[in-house]
């Protein structure tokens, strides 16, 4: 048998050591018993988004004229829908830099962030400024009666 294990096995546990351990174990168990419910309580309950997994109509085909944009909330997040002239594009409107909501700058033909000047092209690619990554595209469907997200 391993010597160190042998040494541990034969070590005499004093009354004080045993009591110390018992008190520490009780205190630990109490802390866990109190801490776990508190942590689970603090954790926000599941957000109920009625539209999760569903397609949502956000505009009619003629509501957004060419090279104009519309900002909509989709599943509690802002989305920018742009009519490029030949098609529709939907991008998550949250700037990847620090979370401000970006705007379509029609005269400049760019998407701009009002906070720190990040600039994106019409497809969401970074043109300049502090944004570390492009804007994330959101699935969009063009149907006969309008534009759907999701």
């Amino acid at each position: 048998m391993d010597d160190s294990l042998n040494g541990l096995g034969s070590k005499k546990v004093s009354r004080k050591d045993f009591l110390d351990l018992a008190v520490a174990a009780s205190a630990g168990l109490t802390a866990v018993g109190i801490g776990v419910p508190i942590l689970t309580y603090i954790w926000p309950p599941l957000e109920v988004t009625t539209t999760a997994g569903q397609k949502v109509k956000i505009a009619g085909l003629k509501d957004i004229t060419p090279v104009k944009a519309k900002a909509v909330m989709f599943n509690n997040k802002p989305v920018l829908v742009i009519n490029t002239g030949d098609n529709f594009i939907a991008l998550a409107a949250t700037c990847p830099h620090l979370g401000c909501v970006v705007k379509w700058d029609e005269p400049a033909g760019k998407i701009m962030c009002p906070c720190h000047g990040a600039a994106f092209d019409i497809r969401g690619n970074v043109l300049g400024g502090p944004a570390p990554s492009p804007l994330v595209p959101v699935p969009l469907t063009k149907a006969a009666d309008g534009i759907y997200l999701g």
Binding site: P37, I38, T40, Y41, W43, P45
Partner: peptide, 13 residues
């Protein structure tokens, strides 16, 4: 009611 029914351990608290 939300605390009682939807929040985890809400009834306990």
């Amino acid at each position: 009611r939300h605390i009682e029914e939807e929040v985890t351990c809400g009834w306990l608290v």
